[in-house]
Amino acid sequence: MEDEGAGLFRTEALQHYAQGGERGGLLKLSPQWTGPVFWVLLGACVFALVFSALVHVSEYAEGPAVVQLEGRMDLPSPVRGTVASVEVRSGERVAAGQVLARLGAAAELAELERYEREFELLLRQRLRSPSDEGVSQALASVRAQLELARARLEQWTVRAPEAGIVSDVRIRRGQHLAEGELVASLMREDSAAVVTAMLPGEYRPLLAVGKPLRLELRGFHHQYQELTIDEVGGELVGPQEVQRALGPTLSASLQVNGAVVLVRARVASRSFLADGERFPYFDGMLGEADARVRSQPILLMLIPGLRAVWP
């Protein structure tokens, strides 16, 4: 047996090489499929690099939104009292001056009826005795009291200040109302819908008039309304300012955290399209709005340091 430490190569191999025999090739330990896989991986890396450099990812400012109908008039109770009758229903068209509700005014009504009887009695006496100055003076006094009684009774009546559509009736017969409490709301027939969105305040420098705003109403998932920003608030506001801007009724339905900026967009139509059908907008409808504020390649998102040299 040959000594294992006699040399690096076997004796037979050295003799074969010295006699000019055929030289051997390199020993290949890798399987044949590694070559194609290498080129596939290289191509995938190049494709990923080009894809991340060319494809942009957008960033959006998102927040709650509410639909408001312009021309809404809230009609408060002029006095404190109990509702005697409700004369209209929601959705009913009314004329200017039409009675919407009456509050109980038993004392004022009794006073008015008493003056009306006295006025009628004196008027008859005046017709019988046209020259009686005492009757004439009494008739003038009762006429003044009668007008005053009518004015007092009118304070217990809620009328429509102009023609429109009753959008909301908040009272029922027998309900006790405090002075200033909401009785009903009136909408003009030609009133337009406006969307007010509350977007995060940190995006205020990136928001501008004319940029797109997308609205998704609650209950209509993935049914987006494409709008255009008409107004952007000049300052950031908190929950209390939002409540003053929208009113206590609407703001109570919204969850606002931190400073926000109010963004408004006018809706072109009083109805919207969802699932192939048209539905009307109603005052107070809630939803989610988003506005695109910036767009950048994926590569810059993965490697922010490239922004300094990116063209």
Score class of each variant (00 low, 15 high):
1 M>N: 09
9 F>V: 08
18 A>Q: 14
22 E>L: 15
25 G>C: 09
26 L>E: 13
27 L>A: 13
28 K>P: 02
32 Q>K: 11
38 F>L: 04
40 V>H: 03
44 A>Y: 02
45 C>R: 03
48 A>D: 09
50 V>Y: 05
51 F>K: 04
51 F>N: 09
51 F>L: 06
53 A>N: 06
56 H>A: 04
58 S>W: 13
61 A>Y: 03
61 A>V: 14
62 E>H: 08
63 G>D: 14
65 A>R: 08
67 V>I: 05
69 L>P: 01
74 D>E: 06
75 L>A: 00
80 R>Q: 12
82 T>Q: 13
82 T>D: 12
82 T>S: 05
82 T>I: 12
87 E>Y: 03
89 R>S: 06
91 G>D: 11
93 R>L: 00
93 R>D: 02
97 G>S: 04
99 V>T: 11
100 L>P: 00
104 G>L: 06
109 L>T: 15
116 E>I: 00
121 L>H: 08
134 G>P: 09
134 G>A: 14
135 V>Y: 10
147 E>C: 02
148 L>V: 05
150 R>K: 07
152 R>T: 15
157 T>K: 03
162 E>V: 14
163 A>S: 08
163 A>W: 08
166 V>N: 00
167 S>Q: 00
168 D>M: 00
168 D>C: 01
170 R>N: 03
171 I>H: 01
180 G>M: 05
180 G>W: 15
181 E>H: 12
183 V>Y: 00
187 M>Y: 01
189 E>C: 01
189 E>A: 05
191 S>V: 00
191 S>R: 02
193 A>S: 01
200 P>Y: 12
201 G>M: 08
206 L>R: 10
207 L>K: 12
207 L>M: 05
207 L>S: 06
208 A>R: 15
209 V>E: 15
209 V>C: 07
212 P>K: 13
213 L>V: 10
217 L>S: 08
220 F>K: 02
222 H>M: 04
227 L>H: 02
229 I>A: 02
230 D>C: 02
231 E>S: 05
232 V>M: 07
245 A>E: 08
245 A>H: 15
246 L>V: 11
248 P>I: 05
248 P>G: 12
250 L>T: 08
253 S>M: 06
256 V>N: 05
258 G>F: 08
262 L>K: 05
263 V>E: 13
263 V>G: 08
266 R>D: 03
266 R>N: 01
266 R>V: 15
269 S>C: 03
273 L>H: 11
279 F>R: 09
280 P>L: 07
285 M>V: 11
288 E>Q: 10
292 R>D: 03
292 R>H: 03
294 R>V: 06
294 R>N: 11
296 Q>V: 09
299 L>N: 06
301 M>F: 13
305 G>M: 13
305 G>P: 00
